[in-house]
């Protein structure tokens, strides 16, 4: 019992630390910038999945489902942004607000 609660306390503290790091990346260490924020956010999601949702205790089936979600999101966001990031836009004079 206490072991579990202590572990949860540790996870929550880690989350708050990461939240602080996110702020640091945004406002203090401008070198980290947006990339840093993104990496920390993904880390926080992973910490929640393992720390709060106990992903590591589940069987292969569950792992498979979780991995599928990550992989398919990557496909959607990756192949999806391929187009706008490689598109050449030709300015038109109708683009006034």
């Amino acid at each position: 019992m206490t072991a579990i609660v202590l572990r949860l306390v540790a996870v929550a503290s880690l989350m708050f630390a990461l939240l602080a790091a996110e702020f640091a990346a945004t406002f203090v260490f401008s070198g980290w910038g947006r990339g840093g924020v993104a990496i920390i956010a993904i880390t926080m999601a992973a910490v929640a999945a393992f720390g709060f949702m106990d992903l590591h205790q589940e069987d292969v089936t569950v792992w498979l489902f979780a991995a599928a979600a990550v992989l398919w999101l990557t496909i959607l966001l990756g192949l999806g942004s391929l187009d706008p990031f490689t598109r050449s836009l030709f300015p038109t004079n109708s683009m006034t607000p």
Binding site: V70, W72, S81
Partner: peptide, 26 residues
């Protein structure tokens, strides 16, 4: 395992929101 698979569908459900953010900001 059922709820985990459901959460996987939920993750994809939010996918278009994230992709719109990418498009919109870009």
């Amino acid at each position: 395992s059922g709820i985990w698979l459901f959460l996987a569908t939920e993750a994809l459900f939010f996918g278009p929101i994230f992709l719109s953010w990418i498009f919109a900001r870009h």
